[in-house]
Design a protein around this nucleic acid. Structure first.
Lengths: 154, 154
DNA sequence: GTGAATACCATTGACGCCCATGGCTACCCA
DNA sequence: TGGGTAGCCATGGGCGTCAATGGTATTCAC
């Protein structure tokens, strides 16, 4: 299973095009749709991104009540309505729609931020600020991450 | 299952390259991604290192979000966003990104410190100081490590 | 017909790959 | 037991390739 890792800052050109990081494209290469799914985050000033398979999983989850609460059903409804398929050109660039650019406050550059199964697109300075905040909070709280035991193999 | 054991101090060349200890490479040799995952520790001046399988376990753990507090989501966000895939060259070297070098205060040499399932990369002098501190604390506190019973296989 | 979106092409700079070297160790053989 | 040798691992540097980027042309839609 491929993951979206690391953060890449790429330029947005005059036409609104931006290169999707090569490693992200590699992560999505197995999928039928050659591109990304993008929708406006409703918790932060950024764009959420993922592959089609994640959308399908989201859809499956929304079906089963016990997995998703009513609120979460609302959320998934929002997501599906807002989501758009952005296919990349032969060079691996996507064209960012105007409203996504507005929502994330993008201008010259865009930061692709890996979140594991998904990723986000931020205005780089805004992300830096957000990251600093989270990092300082982590430093204070020293939270721990309960690791699941290894699944299946090895 | 392979573990990361012992400590190795290797040189960082002018291009920022450093050899990953051969035994660490052997530990990771079975994995799909031939290289290491590295991210800045948020509790110490060092770089955390692991294999892709460890990252995937982390991602799996993050999936069940009812088990996840906001804090813990913070952590996984920080880790995935900061994690870089550093593949090694045919000689077993990785290229250390500038900000990782800065965070750990690396210059001429780097210490690879085994931590079992994961490892860390330290500025050698800094690690020596940290180790001395931990050791003296252990002498005082006599910490214990509850051993799990053997799980089924291997 | 005009504008936008997509495809095509060219440039460049970073990164990955290749070859060469040196030192240490472990092994072999006398 | 000691010298020689071979192999592995860490190291240094040069070169080619690919990803990111900027621009132009062509096609599609309205």
């Amino acid at each position: 299973m491929g993951l979206f890792l690391s953060t890449f800052v790429n330029k947005v050109d005059r036409k609104g095009r931006v290169s999707v990081p090569a490693t992200f494209r590699a992560t999505l290469s197995a999928q039928t749709f050659q591109g990304i799914i993008a929708y406006r985050s409703f918790t932060a000033a950024c764009v959420e991104g993922c592959g089609m398979d994640f959308m399908e999983r989201l859809s499956d989850s929304a079906q089963s009540f016990d997995a998703f609460s009513a609120e979460q059903e609302d959320i998934s409804a929002l997501i599906f309505a807002d989501a758009r398929q952005l296919s990349w050109d032969p060079e691996g660039r996507i064209l960012l729609p105007e409203d996504l650019i507005d929502h994330a406050g993008l201008s010259e550059t865009a930061a692709f931020v890996g979140k594991g199964q998904t990723f986000q697109i931020w205005q780089p300075e805004a992300y830096k600020a957000m990251e600093a905040e989270i990092r300082s909070r982590a430093l204070k709280n020293r939270p721990t991450l309960p690791l699941k035991p290894k699944t299946g193999g090895a």
